[in-house]
Design a protein around this nucleic acid. Structure first.
Length: 677
DNA sequence: GAGCACTGC
């Protein structure tokens, strides 16, 4: 291992030394199962650096560790710390952006320690806590550590916090940067047990991490990345889909069938269309050509279909996987030899002025392109075709804009306030969100009654404090807290749960008529919220039947998630001693409650048949997925706006204009004034 | 008149 105090290493891909490779080969030949756990750990590239890592981490308060994929940093470093008695007085926390990663890492490390999971090594994710009093190494999602910080901003039970996958810059990791930095400083000032902070990243762009954590030293680890050959197009491609198609079939006709291809595209529709085209073309190829097995891959694809990408294609067949960026980080497919990168991604942008989220196809960043390329070299050397010129690549943004600069910040600001951050507008973010975004979030919280000004400081109201207890967007927490007034808390809990997980409605385009027929019996003319409520009630009454889900095109997994979320929210209500009433058959008061909670998201029918939002007079349309798509109610509230080809409102309810006015008289009085001007 | 990248509490 090299030690770089300031400048990051120059090379993107560093080949492992020959002796390493020999050792690894030997290990592979023996087969992992025949090596003892200890031997396996020693065969990892990181092992040679163990004494140096321990020596460094023992004396440092903050450190940044860069390790390529396969370096073993995430499983080994927590154990090295534990073995060297660093941080034994408390718990070593390791955060992950994803649940599955936290769980599988904890399982792996507890196996290496020959300890039962949840004893020495455990994990905590939403709905699942596999830890105990004995737990000394704890894997958890970044969101979970942030939740814990609300209970204790100094994170006193932890002696070390390792923020892993920091390069992904999730909104939770970004807030945690500030939270752990402040906790470390305060603990030092108060003479408490020190907090050690370790930032782990897979990319070289670590200057910013180091600078933010008081010029923390950077330790560089070698990985197991195999060399990857990169090809750019000679000319700029105007049609990336056509270019991808041509590239796939060129490779297909030239290389052995055992070499699988992974293509990065932007979305479901595009992937389904390309899947069909590939299948059609491959039928008409000469017999000398291998067979092609084409597999789509995207998040809303049913689980069992996602799992197909892990199965080997039959002998003489080539696997071609057409994927969204889900294959960039979340799903690792073994055996990929060729990557085709269109250089495009569908991603959300946020405009704080209009409060509008725009979902658009755009260029990837350089970091993202490297991540995609890396997917070709996980088991052996690979090849990556970039469907753009090298000049174009040079003009890509270096990094993907961190999530915190692309989101509505209402939840983040609420969280910072409950953490008692002295002045949220000057909070020490690594990458500051725009002042507009912060102001917009404060304004939104103010309208919800969550904040007030006291001596020129923004502070939480008692209502705001209650809102922060829910793992929800503030507008949903508010709606739940309003529900006792309308005697419909049970129903609102159901609706909010349905709205805060992925859609429970499964819409296979090929079976559109069947879907419509099946769904008819649940439809309420009052809108999507009541319709969803009807579906949930039917699901519960029929004992959560799998067969029923299939017949009615309901995603059972997401439905189960709704149940979990609902019981979590219900528990929080009970802890607050909220009365839990059901409105039974009365749906008007449910819509009144929704109108009151979502008054900022209201739209009115105009004389010309279009809709404009009450808030900013933005031209909007009813999303085609809505029950109300063919209807024209005068006044509606919606869950969210999403700008794709048009500005669409999703998840609507019909409401009375009067209800909105009663919910926020002052707000609507001002709106009327500004309209008249 | 016609559509939805990916996570997470």
């Amino acid at each position: 291992m090299n030690h770089y105090p300031k400048q990051p290493p120059a090379k993107k891909f560093k080949p492992a030394s020959p002796s390493d490779q020999q050792k690894r080969k030997a290990a592979m030949q023996c087969g992992p199962s025949r090596l003892s756990v200890e031997e396996q750990r020693r065969s990892l590239p990181i092992y040679q650096a163990r004494p140096h890592i321990i020596g460094q981490l023992r004396q440092l308060d903050c450190a940044v560790i860069i390790g390529e994929t396969g370096s073993g940093k995430t499983t080994q470093i927590p154990q090295y710390l534990y073995e060297a008695c660093i941080g034994r007085q408390g718990v070593i926390a390791v955060t992950q952006p994803r649940r599955v990663a936290a769980i599988s890492l904890a399982t792996r490390v507890s196996e290496e320690r020959k300890a039962e999971l949840s004893k020495l090594v455990g994990y905590t994710v939403r709905f699942e806590d596999a830890t105990s009093e004995e737990t000394k190494i704890k894997f958890l999602t970044d969101g979970m550590l942030l939740r814990e910080a609300i209970g204790d901003p100094l994170l006193r039970m932890y002696s070390v916090v390792i923020l892993d996958e920091a390069h992904e810059r999730t909104i939770h990791t970004d807030v945690l940067f500030g939270v752990v930095k402040s906790a470390q400083k305060k603990r030092k000032e108060q003479g408490k047990q020190p907090l050690k902070i370790i930032i782990m990243s897979a990319t070289m762009d670590v200057d910013m991490f180091s600078r933010y954590f008081n010029s923390a030293p950077v330790l560089y680890l070698e990985g197991r990345q195999h060399p990857i050959q990169i090809f750019y197009t000679k000319e700029s491609q105007s049609d990336y889909l056509q270019a991808a198609l041509v590239t796939v079939f060129q490779v297909h006709q030239e290389v052995p069938a055992s070499h699988d291809i992974l293509v990065f595209l932007t979305g479901q529709e595009e992937i389904e269309a390309m899947t069909k085209t590939c299948r059609d073309i491959s039928k008409h190829l000469p017999d000398s050509c291998p067979q092609m097995v084409v597999m789509p891959l995207y998040a809303s694809l049913p689980h069992f279909q996602q799992l197909r990408v892990f199965h080997n294609a039959p002998k003489g067949h080539r696997k071609v996987i057409l994927s969204t960026n889900i294959a960039e980080t979340s799903i690792t497919i073994p055996g990929i030899k060729y990557v085709v990168d269109t250089g495009m991604v569908k991603a959300k942008k946020y405009n704080p002025e209009s409060g509008l989220e725009v979902l658009a196809v755009q260029r990837v960043s350089k970091a993202q392109a490297w991540q995609r390329t890396g997917r070709a070299g996980r088991e052996d050397s690979g090849i990556c075709y970039r469907l753009y010129t090298e000049d174009e690549f040079e003009n890509f943004d270096e990094m993907t804009v961190p999530e915190i600069q692309r989101c509505n910040l209402a939840s983040v600001v609420l969280q910072l306030l409950v953490l008692k951050v002295p002045d949220i507008l000057t909070f020490d973010f690594m990458s500051k969100p725009s002042p507009d975004s912060m102001q917009a979030a404060v304004k939104q919280l103010d309208l919800l009654g969550a904040v007030e000004r006291k001596e020129n400081q923004i502070v939480l109201t008692p209502l705001g404090k209650k809102m922060a207890a829910f793992p929800l967007e503030p507008k949903f927490s508010k709606t739940i807290l309003l529900s006792p007034k309308y005697h419909c808390t049970e129903e609102i809990l159901t609706i909010v749960s349905l709205l805060s997980v992925d859609s429970v409605l499964h819409n296979p385009p090929a079976k559109r008529d069947d879907v419509q027929t099946a769904r008819k019996k649940f439809i309420s003319s009052e809108g999507d919220h009541i319709t969803l409520l009807n579906i949930y009630r039917a699901f519960k009454n029929l004992g959560k039947n799998k067969e029923w889900c299939r017949e009615n095109f309901i995603n059972g997994r997401n439905m189960a998630m709704v149940s979990d979320v609902r019981s979590q929210l219900r528990d929080i209500c009970l802890k607050m001693s909220m009365p839990l009433e059901s409105s039974r058959t009365d749906t008007q008061n449910i819509r009144q409650c929704l109108a009151h909670g979502l008054f900022m998201h209201a739209a009115e029918l105009q004389p010309d048949g279009t809709y404009t939002t009450v808030d900013t007079h933005q031209l909007v349309a009813i999303h085609p997925s809505s029950i109300l798509f063919h209807c024209k109610p005068a006044c509606i509230v919606y869950n969210e706006l999403l700008h794709t080809s048009k500005c669409y409102m999703r998840d609507l309810s019909v409401v009375d204009a009067d209800w909105l006015f009663e919910a926020a008289p002052e707000y609507f009085r001002q709106k009327l004034k500004t309209t008249k001007k």
